[in-house]
Design a protein around this nucleic acid. Sequence first.
RNA 1: GCCGUUGUAGCUCAGUGGUAGAGCACUUCCUUGGUAAGGAAGAGGUCAAGGGUUCAAUUCCCUUUAACGGCUCCA
Length: 642
Amino acid sequence: MMKITFPDGAIREYAEGSSSLDIARSISEGLARKVLAASVDGQVWDLSRPILQDSSLKLLTWDDPDAKNTFWHSTAHLMAEAVESMYPGVKFWVGPPVDNGFYYDMDMGGQTITEDDLRKLENRMSELSKTNNAFLRKEITKADALQYFTQKGDEYKLDLLQNLQDGAITFYTQGGFTDLCRGPHIPHTGLIKAVKLLNVAGAYWKGDEKNKQLTRIYGVSFPSQKELDEHLTMLEEAKKRDHRKLGKELGIFTFDDDVGPGLALWMPNGTVIIEELEKLAKETETAAGYKRVVTPHIAKESMYLTSGHLPYYQDSMFPPMELDGVKYYLKAMNCPHHHKIYSAEARSYRELPLRLAEYGTCYRYEQSGELFGLMRVRCLHMNDAHIYCTKEQFAQEFRAVNDMYLKYFKIFGIEKYVMRLSLHDPAKLGQKYINEPELWLETEQLVREVLINSGVPFVEVPDEGAFYGPKIDVQIWSAIGREFTLATNQVDFAQGRRFKLEYTTRDNSTDTPLIIHRAPLGTHERFIGFLLEHYAGKFPTWLSPVQVRILPISDKFMDYARSLEGKLLKLGIRVDIDDRNEKIGKKIRDTELMKVPYMFVVGEKEANEGKVAVRRQGKGDLGAQDVSEIIANLKTEIEHRQ
RNA sequence: GCCGUUGUAGCUCAGUGGUAGAGCACUUCCUUGGUAAGGAAGAGGUCAAGGGUUCAAUUCCCUUUAACGGCUCCA
């Protein structure tokens, strides 16, 4: 007998060699039907795999992330089985579970798959699942595995095998499909009741663009049709929050073929938001001791040679224009310009830290396939600043920047984010990173300490640093689930020396300042794109392009509406009047759809009593209020940035 | 940049080898209506651009361009 410990601490005895499924069955048949995989001593196992010794056991059902992953991984195998049966000769690479589903990469040998084909594949998978074929695990020697795939002529699996140790190799077979796979899998295909194949895409083999491109099919599956339907509904809802859709509906921004890809045009409503954000940034930065500067959109090639950007980033810059034999580049970053402002005057340690801020306009030649709404554009406005400080001041300055992020996140209600400490890869010194191995380690440790001391949770990611130093990126997620870098905070130990930036120290010698590059609000483009999705277009009053819309019951009350409008305008409240010849219901509906936070309905009663009938977007009628009262409330709400 | 899909009115979308339609929006008129769509009429399109096949192309083919789904990249 062996002792099995359950998550609640209970210990029960079972015959050696009992499987997790046996154990589940001993608890209840219902559980045995529901359970998908088992966690044995912390490792996810097939349910059918015999347990041979005392272990802790957790039976995993659908709600457990490990079970979901196992379920989706098994579905990937099911899909591969369907593909193999419909497209003979296809070679498979890997088919892992991902955040919301699974994919399988395959070499279709020149065959293409269309959307219609996906429906056919789904049907085939549904047929195959009904066979209730078990996922059979088989340990196999490396020699036998090599022979199997050599015979099959499958160079992809042979490539995978090369990196595997003999003795740790397993095959899984369900029905007629056998795959090299470490598992684990759910017990049988019949558990996969609902499958949706979402899209087909190209993916480079091993993620390297120099390699052949494989066909990747993404899908998602569930233990019941109901859950699939719910998931699909959720995806539809997410689409409604897509900033590209909302941006068009609300008149925030637009793109035009004649202007060019990735070059956003900000419409009046979007410009209001930009100006509110800039106001916030200027207030915040002024209070934190920043000074504003303004610099040109272009600069000579020589400056980017000095900065060191050109060799690293030339491909991502717009090609230069040549004037009198001199090349000029559109600026892709503001830092060199700011460095020139630093070096324009002799600096003393008494001036440091010197903080130069600018909503600088940058142009980046992003690859055409990378453009994505406002999130990835070719013309962008960075909430940029550069802080020049001594080594002693660094920790405090860096931390102050992080605190500024958190302050902003609070204002915007941003709760889901991850701070990533991006480090260099020693193997790429001199290529991707400036070749200063000791400075790298020293600075990385400096930043790490600041983060630890400020108690902000973070993850470390190798090989993600800027070329001139380590950085902290703040990752956020769009409504469609795409991940973006919002804010960035970078240390730069390289450019100061390259630009010969100096200051006179207390003992009358000279030193080079450390530089912090920071952009807490990222860019107008990305931040407003994010806010659109974050608020689902329902901006808080202080950011709303139109804060109040006055809705006269009929044009008899237009004079009263106009006098109200005048009052609000004088107070700097963004107000307009729906003066169309429409009924009040129609005006309300349209104003609701435009997500204007406040509606003032005015008719005979209100005009006579000097009141307005207040209606809050999404909340309905709030009843009549005195004009002075509602105006005071509005002012407060806006001033507090609510 | 690569793989795949798509491009018809301001927006959302039908449709066709014989030069186009709906709803919303827009204009005008009727209506002056009390909390999520009042009625009528009208105007609006080189069917993304260029080339080819054809008696005839918005429709079929090719190229370009843009957007979308991914991959790669992301200062």
